[in-house]
Amino acid sequence: MSVRLKLTLSYAGFLMLAGVLLLAAVWVFLLRGVPAGYLVPDLSNVRRVLNPHNFGPSVFGTAAAAVLVFLLVFGLLGGWILASRMLAPLNRITEATRMAANGSLCHRIRLPGRRDEFHELADSFDGMLARLEAHVAEQQRFAANASHELRTPLAITQTLLDVARKDPNRDSGELVERLRAVNARAIELTEALLLLSRADQRSFTREHVDLSLIAEEAAETLLPLAEKHGITIHTSGEITPTTGSPALLLQMTTNLLHNAIVHNLPEHGTMQIYTAIGPESVLLTVENTGDKLTPQLVSTLAEPFQRGTERIRSDHAGVGLGLAIVDSIAQAHDGTLTLTPRDAGGLRVTVQLPVPPPHTGG
């Protein structure tokens, strides 16, 4: 049975039960116990009408049956109408669910009326649809950008091979070197996509780590690249314990430092890395000099494959997933990523991660 029919029968059954109890109470407490001589003898007409003997079991049973039939019909009709009115919001929610299942995520319920349980359910469903629509749109943009990025090295490889086939006397050494560079870039992009997927799925084991040591390790690893670009690195901070994947946190920090090196001033640039611990979170901050950035541009830099208007590809420019991976790793560790343009030019990036729970002895 439908919920509407169940509610209708429930209303009618409850009304019938109330009617039976009411009629039983009338019979037991009001009619059956009235004495025959209770009424005035001279008032024969009134006595004939009100004499309790006129309300015998057969007469009362007939009247009670008629009343119960009326209550049943009234309960069924009234219950059907009330159930329809009560379930109308649920029907709108069901229709919106069907539309969402068919791929229409732009539809919203926007249930009118006063706030009740159905109104809260509809608002929650609208919020879920909005988040789902935004997520699907983001995934579609990501898939389109990833396809474009992966197609580029494949197209270059195909062009180089076609040129070599048409010109057999061409120097093969140059061709091999260019193919190697294109293939390395394709591998780098594939590994970045796999790392991004791993962070999104949170498929890692949490361990106690010191974020300051990870920052020092990343700085030492990228020191040759910084020296090549003429970038001076300053590292400072205190012990910053947190929990997470050491490999992912190291990749996150390395991406931040790499981004700060590549997108710095062409000469005499600087970069600062410092860590700090607060009452409820630990902070990793990376600042670098560079061109002035607008807040509108900075707000998009964590999107996949976003390099900024002035960010030109070079041998170390990456694949456009550096800050996107940082953001994904931070979220996977229940943290946040904040990007802020510096007044003097360049970028300030802050990663905030939760403080690990205190150790319990045992």
Results as ranks from 00 to 15, higher is better:
253 T>P: 01
5 L>T: 12
209 V>A: 05
199 A>S: 03
70 F>M: 13
197 S>V: 14
321 L>Q: 01
46 V>M: 12
32 R>L: 10
272 Q>Y: 07
327 D>C: 05
330 A>F: 01
43 L>S: 15
178 R>Q: 06
79 G>K: 08
214 I>Y: 02
156 I>R: 06
187 I>C: 15
80 W>C: 11
117 E>L: 09
109 I>G: 00
173 G>E: 09
77 L>S: 08
78 G>H: 06
226 A>Y: 00
1 M>Q: 07
4 R>P: 04
113 G>F: 00
171 D>T: 05
42 D>G: 13
356 P>K: 01
93 I>M: 06
287 E>K: 05
124 S>A: 15
355 V>M: 10
295 P>D: 00
306 Q>W: 12
214 I>P: 01
134 A>H: 14
343 D>S: 14
307 R>L: 03
171 D>N: 08
128 M>I: 15
158 Q>K: 08
105 L>G: 03
231 I>M: 07
125 F>V: 06
361 G>K: 11
56 G>L: 06
96 A>D: 06
75 G>F: 00
121 L>Q: 07
18 A>H: 07
186 A>N: 06
20 V>F: 13
294 T>A: 01
359 H>Y: 05
4 R>V: 15
113 G>S: 02
220 E>D: 11
114 R>P: 09
275 T>P: 01
252 M>P: 02
336 T>I: 07
169 N>P: 12
81 I>E: 07
169 N>E: 15
244 G>V: 00
349 V>G: 08
9 L>E: 08
177 E>N: 07
91 N>K: 15
283 L>I: 05
206 R>C: 02
184 A>H: 00
355 V>Q: 05
292 K>H: 11
247 A>N: 08
296 Q>C: 06
132 L>T: 14
147 S>M: 12
